[in-house]
């Protein structure tokens, strides 16, 4: 079943055309990686998908979900490290989109928050302060918050930045299991092409306009795919 479809989308900011004639789609259960260099329009596309920025032309259509029901894990810079907040407070704030006029949390919200913390094995952290956590734990907390607001789709923007190798591997496994076992559709923006390809079923390679969109197996066989994977190994 189709969840999301972009057709001939053009987007720009400050008179720079960041996304050019982009078409792709996401089906239920997909694991899509969006790759590309800095300045290739990935962040602008993320804003477009979340409905924070309107495309200049073209259409982004959502089927069976609303744009505010995408569970979003922002890039690391967006969240303050020294903010006094308990883990429970952070995770619960993901439930605020369930009703536009929601002002207070219900018992059901608390159950949803606890379930998602259970899923990510962070139930023990509920009463802890967000600022006392390790980077890896923080990402899990923010992922739990994203799951609270997600109906079927999560959108992760560079989730592995600043994680150590062990935490990175853990988070990849966790996301893969959410995708496999909970039928959660995943869109991940990433730099780390070689690892991402191990888990992702589909790839969208952008350089403002799409250079490749298709399955990751096909991608690995293309010239550009080989180059990206080769460049990664050289590093």
């Amino acid at each position: 079943m189709r969840l999301l479809e972009c057709s001939n989308v053009n987007m720009s900011y400050d008179n720079i055309q960041a996304v050019k004639d982009l078409s792709f789609y996401v089906d239920q259960g997909d694991y899509l990686c969006i790759v590309g260099e800095n300045g290739s329009g990935k962040t602008t596309l993320v804003k477009g998908l979340l409905g924070l920025m309107a495309p200049d032309s073209g259409r982004i259509s959502y089927i069976g979900i609303k744009k505010n029901e995408i569970g979003y894990l922002p890039q690391k810079t967006a969240v303050q490290k020294d903010f006094p907040a308990s883990v429970m407070e952070v995770v619960l704030s993901g439930c605020l989109n369930r009703d536009r006029f929601k002002l207070f949390y219900t018992k059901r919200d608390r159950i949803i928050a606890l379930e998602n913390m259970e899923r990510l094995a962070i139930s023990g952290l509920a009463g802890k302060s967000f600022m006392d956590l390790s980077e890896g734990q923080r990402q899990r907390v923010l992922l739990a918050r994203a799951l609270c607001s997600a109906k079927r789709l999560i959108l992760l923007d560079e989730p592995m930045t600043s994680l150590d190798p062990v935490a990175t591997a853990d988070l990849y496994e966790l996301i893969a299991s959410l995708n496999r076992e909970c039928d959660m559709t995943v869109i991940m923006v990433t730099h780390d092409v070689s690892t991402a390809l191990k888990y992702a079923g589909k790839v969208l390679h952008m350089k403002n306009s799409p250079l490749f969109f298709g399955s990751s197996r096909e991608y690995a066989a293309t010239e550009i795919g080989k180059k990206m994977l080769g460049a990664d190994i050289d590093d």
Binding site: L50, G51, L52, K66, N68, I70, Y72, P74, A78, V79, Q80, F83, A85, E89, V90, L92, S93, G94, L96, N97, R100, K102, L103, F104, Y105, R145, S149
Partner: peptide, 18 residues
């Protein structure tokens, strides 16, 4: 609760429709 969400992470709050 909304003030908390907006203060903690404005981008996420915006994405959830606040």
């Amino acid at each position: 609760n909304k003030i908390f969400a907006v203060t903690f992470d404005e981008l996420f709050a915006k994405a959830t429709g606040i």
